[in-house]
């Protein structure tokens, strides 16, 4: 049983990191795009884990109700959106992932002992008519280091 929770900023909240990345995109002289959005992604797995568990974790632990929204996706069946390219950047196997341990700790405080494994990563959204190749190039150059991270593109 595998869920992914995507945490992103509510529309009226300014995405500073996204703006900084947009500046980098322009600096890199890549074809213009509409915008870049940033967020976190948490991958939760456990044989006893339920939808209700994940819902509660998302509301009470993983998202800030004032500034963030959480999107729960079961077993990676994420509905695609056109005009948007999504990237996830994860730590490579073996590289430490401290927030993952913290999620487990937080879940136990919420009474949820069913999580067996957590993986945390960064989620990026590239909005506009951007090519897959441009997104890949940008991520490799600015967002990840392939010595310690892997990239997943939708």
């Amino acid at each position: 049983m595998n869920w992914r929770v995507f945490v992103s900023l509510k529309p009226r909240v300014i995405d500073h990191r996204g703006r900084a990345l947009e500046a980098e995109w322009r600096h890199a002289k890549l074809p213009s795009l509409d915008g870049i959005g940033t967020g976190q992604v948490y991958e939760l797995s456990g044989s006893g884990l339920s939808d209700a568990d994940v819902q509660r974790l998302t509301e009470s632990l993983l998202t800030d109700p004032i500034t963030q929204t959480g999107e729960i996706v079961y077993a990676d069946h994420r509905p695609t959106r056109s005009g948007v390219r999504r990237v996830r950047i994860w730590p490579k196997p073996g590289v430490s992932d401290p927030p993952a341990e913290t999620v487990m700790l937080g879940a136990r405080d919420l009474g949820c002992d069913n999580i067996e494994r957590v993986r945390t990563g960064f989620a990026y959204e590239f909005r506009g008519p951007v090519s897959r190749q441009d997104v890949k190039t940008f991520c490799e150059r600015y967002l990840m280091n392939d010595l310690v991270q892997t990239m997943e593109m939708e």
Partner: peptide, 15 residues
């Protein structure tokens, strides 16, 4: 095991 043979590490200051 899928773990690469030599891992460059990110530290964990809280530990």
């Amino acid at each position: 095991d899928g773990i690469p043979s030599s891992v460059v590490q990110i530290g964990n200051p809280i530990v």
